[in-house]
Design a protein around this nucleic acid. Structure first.
Lengths: 211, 211
DNA sequence: TTCAAGTTGGACACTCTTGTCCAATTGGAC
DNA sequence: GTCCAATTGGACAAGAGTGTCCAACTTGAA
């Protein structure tokens, strides 16, 4: 109360979690070089030494953060994917509903946004980071989406030659407006996500829907 | 010859240009915080003091770089846009040809790639940088593309409700594969750009081409 | 030649960061 | 209460970066 830290020590969580969470924020905000261990320490409400005890050095901290975020994000996406429509009654409606949840997750979920930012920003410094992210993160997601789209095609809802390409284009359309407009600090509300998803799905179905 | 600098002092250019060019490279590679004036100086083949004489301080250097890149990129795009098909004989062929050049420019031209990277990475530190870039850079380009697409629609080649949305989705489709696959250091060859452009245009026309 | 402007490299003070060390403190298990 | 491990805060050396100062040097023009 008397200290000036308006941060969120957020007790109840383990020190380790608090460190990783704070580190994710700081890394994403300031980049690898700009991030200071001290900033992480104060944000986590922890002494600097404790961080060194847990993760060794700055590199270790960074890698732990990426690993943790990757796992978390993958788990969440798996849950999300279960709602992908199999044999929809109204394809457009149901695909839009799924897309809305997907986009909301990508844009609002801290984990996903952090990971995306880290992968895009620090890929120069950590080439393997981009590779891993592409393989386990976006790549894995895309191939899962491709599988779902294939099923829809098999069931006669869609028409395309290349499922992987369709999945890529689906995701590009879904994030088109977000990338152009929001990207920076602010991020879209759920209503805005719904609008973007609706417009993306409409175009996607114009291209790939059964004629 | 006897020095170990494998860099490119690139005489003949004015000192100022060499400084800005080197600074662009370093800023994009290492980010704002990670970039050091010394690195810029040696890369430009110039003494550190000279940089301070020209641009004041690090902030000034950064802003000069962004301004220079913005101007350069805008000028190049204007030239490029003149080749956008007005009344094409074969829409798909001609739109693909333009898209190939557009994508090649975006992915291979150092200026564009640097600017895109800077805008995406440093928008946290310089919110107005993202704003300016969106307004004069990507936003301006998109609205020009939208105008061209409107003309095609008016001439009976395309069908859509919202030209701005169509332009956004066009650009998203165009860059879909690049964002997913390349992004990092490596960038696509002209043949790869042609392939990506072809696939993007095909989908775009499936969605918006005259039935 | 002489002058002036630009340039150079080196030295400098200052700040910030990393990573280490350590003595003091805490807090839970027994 | 006692013990033990984790934690804390502070001090510290080493390194890197910024921005300033300045004396020496180029270079082209008057």
């Amino acid at each position: 109360m008397d200290t000036e830290t308006a941060e969120k020590p957020d007790l109840a969580k383990s020190k380790r979690d608090r460190i990783l969470e704070a580190a994710a924020t700081v890394f994403c905000q300031d980049g690898y070089t700009g991030a200071s261990i001290d900033a992480v320490a104060t944000k986590a409400g922890v002494s600097r030494q404790t961080i060194y005890n847990h993760v060794g050095d700055k590199d270790g901290l960074f890698k732990e953060v990426v690993a943790a975020l990757t796992d978390k994000s993958a788990a969440k996406f798996l849950v999300l994917l279960e709602e992908f429509p199999d044999k929809p009654e109204h394809l457009e409606t149901e695909l839009t509903a799924f897309s809305t949840r997907f986009l909301t997750h990508m844009t609002q979920d801290k984990t996903s946004r952090w990971l995306l930012r880290l992968a895009e920003n620090e890929s120069g410094r950590y080439p393997e980071l981009f590779t891993v992210w592409r393989q386990y993160g976006s790549g894995r997601k895309r191939s899962m989406v491709a599988a779902q789209l294939s099923q829809l095609a098999l069931n006669g809802y869609l028409e395309f030659d290349d499922a992987a390409l369709a999945a890529r284009q689906y995701m590009a359309l879904l994030t088109a407006e977000w990338r152009a407009e929001f990207q920076l600090g602010r991020f879209p509300s759920e209503e805005e996500c719904a609008g973007m998803a609706e417009r993306a799905v409409k175009t996607f179905l114009r291209a790939f829907g059964r004629r």
